[in-house]
Amino acid sequence: MRPAVTPESAVPAAQPPERVVARVRRHARILILPAILLILVAGATAYGVGIVPETWQVLAVLGGAVVVVLLGSFLPFLAWLTRRTTITTRRVIVRSGVAIRVRQELLLSRGHDVTVRRTWGQSAFGSGDVRIETGHEKPLVLKDVPNPTLVQGALHELMGEEQARLSERRRVEQTMIDGDTVAWGGR
C-alpha cells in the first residue's frame, strides 16, 4: 500500500536561495614577467632619455617605452583582471574578456567528475588546473586556480548536495504521479 499524498508533501520544498561560495582568479604568478618587464623598461627608458641628445630622440624613446609597457605589462594585467570565476551553490560562472565579454555557466547538476592537474611550476606556487567533466566533448577547465584541492573539495560537496536535491525533487514528483493523481492516458 502506498502512503497517502498530503498537500504538504505533494509540493516540492522551496529551493534555498543561491549563494556565492567563492570568487577565484588565476594565480597572480602569471604577472611576474609583466612586472619584471615594467621595471626593466622603466630603467632602460631613464637611461635612454639621459643619453640621447636631441628632443625627437627623447620622444622616440618615451614613445617606444609606452608601447612596450602597454603591450607587455598593461594588457596582460588587464586580461588577468577581467577573467573571473564565481562558484555558487548551483553553478560555476566564468567571465572573461576586455573588449568582448564572454560568460560561460555550468550547472553543478551537469558536472559529474572534478579532477586537478598540476605542473611542477604550479605545484611550487600552490596552484593548478581544475577540470570539471560534464559528459560532453569539451570539459570546463579553470586554469591556474590558487589552492586547487580546496576548490575541488568544495565542488565535490556542492555537486553532491545538488544531486541529492534533484533526487529528492524527482522522488516527490514521482510520489505525486503515483498517488491519487492519474496521468493523462494512464490506467
Results as ranks from 00 to 15, higher is better:
residue 83 R to E: 15
residue 161 E to A: 14
residue 186 G to K: 11
residue 158 L to E: 08
residue 61 V to Y: 05
residue 119 T to A: 08
residue 127 S to Q: 01
residue 115 T to N: 10
residue 63 G to V: 12
residue 112 H to G: 04
residue 24 V to I: 15
residue 152 Q to P: 03
residue 95 R to C: 00
residue 52 V to K: 02
residue 26 R to P: 09
residue 148 P to I: 06
residue 142 L to K: 01
residue 58 V to P: 04
residue 72 G to E: 08
residue 21 V to L: 12
residue 10 A to G: 15
residue 152 Q to A: 12
residue 60 A to C: 10
residue 115 T to G: 06
residue 25 R to K: 14
residue 161 E to P: 03
residue 41 V to H: 00
residue 75 L to T: 05
residue 29 R to P: 01
residue 36 I to L: 13
residue 39 I to W: 02
residue 111 G to S: 09
residue 119 T to Q: 05
residue 34 P to C: 10
residue 156 H to I: 09
residue 100 I to W: 14
residue 118 R to L: 09
residue 66 V to W: 05
residue 99 A to R: 07
residue 27 H to V: 11
residue 40 L to Y: 02
residue 152 Q to R: 15
residue 132 I to M: 09
residue 24 V to K: 07
residue 138 K to W: 03
residue 17 P to Y: 04
residue 129 D to V: 09
residue 162 E to A: 14
residue 178 D to T: 13
residue 176 M to F: 14
residue 69 V to W: 08
residue 44 A to H: 00
residue 109 S to A: 15
residue 89 T to K: 04
residue 7 P to K: 07
residue 47 Y to C: 00
residue 98 V to D: 03
residue 110 R to C: 03
residue 48 G to L: 01
residue 36 I to E: 01
residue 149 T to I: 07
residue 111 G to R: 05
residue 75 L to N: 03
residue 137 E to M: 11
residue 97 G to H: 04
residue 146 P to M: 03
residue 166 L to K: 12
residue 50 G to L: 02
residue 62 L to D: 01
residue 167 S to N: 11
residue 124 A to G: 04
residue 165 R to V: 01
residue 103 R to E: 02
residue 72 G to K: 06
residue 178 D to K: 11
residue 129 D to M: 08
residue 19 R to G: 09
residue 8 E to Y: 08
residue 111 G to Y: 04
residue 61 V to S: 06
residue 83 R to F: 07
residue 70 L to Y: 08
residue 90 R to T: 15
residue 166 L to S: 11
residue 24 V to M: 10
residue 1 M to A: 13
residue 96 S to E: 07
residue 12 P to T: 13
residue 79 A to T: 07
residue 30 I to E: 14
residue 177 I to N: 03
residue 22 A to P: 05
residue 16 P to M: 13
residue 62 L to S: 04
residue 51 I to S: 12
residue 35 A to F: 01
residue 94 V to H: 03
residue 96 S to F: 00
residue 128 G to D: 00
residue 94 V to S: 06
residue 82 T to K: 01
residue 26 R to E: 15
residue 91 R to F: 02
residue 140 L to Y: 02
residue 81 L to A: 13
residue 60 A to Q: 05
residue 28 A to F: 11
residue 50 G to P: 01
residue 176 M to W: 15
residue 147 N to L: 09
residue 59 L to Y: 11
residue 34 P to M: 11
residue 122 Q to T: 09
residue 50 G to A: 09
residue 174 Q to S: 12
residue 175 T to C: 09
residue 102 V to W: 02
residue 75 L to R: 03
residue 37 L to V: 14
residue 168 E to D: 13
residue 53 P to K: 09
residue 183 A to F: 10
residue 33 L to C: 09
residue 25 R to E: 10
residue 113 D to P: 06
residue 158 L to Q: 08
residue 41 V to Y: 00
residue 28 A to S: 12
residue 126 G to A: 08
residue 181 T to L: 14
residue 177 I to H: 04
residue 183 A to K: 09
residue 183 A to R: 13
residue 119 T to E: 08
residue 14 A to T: 14
residue 82 T to E: 02
residue 99 A to E: 06
residue 61 V to L: 08
residue 38 L to E: 13
residue 83 R to D: 12
residue 100 I to D: 13
residue 16 P to I: 11
residue 132 I to V: 13
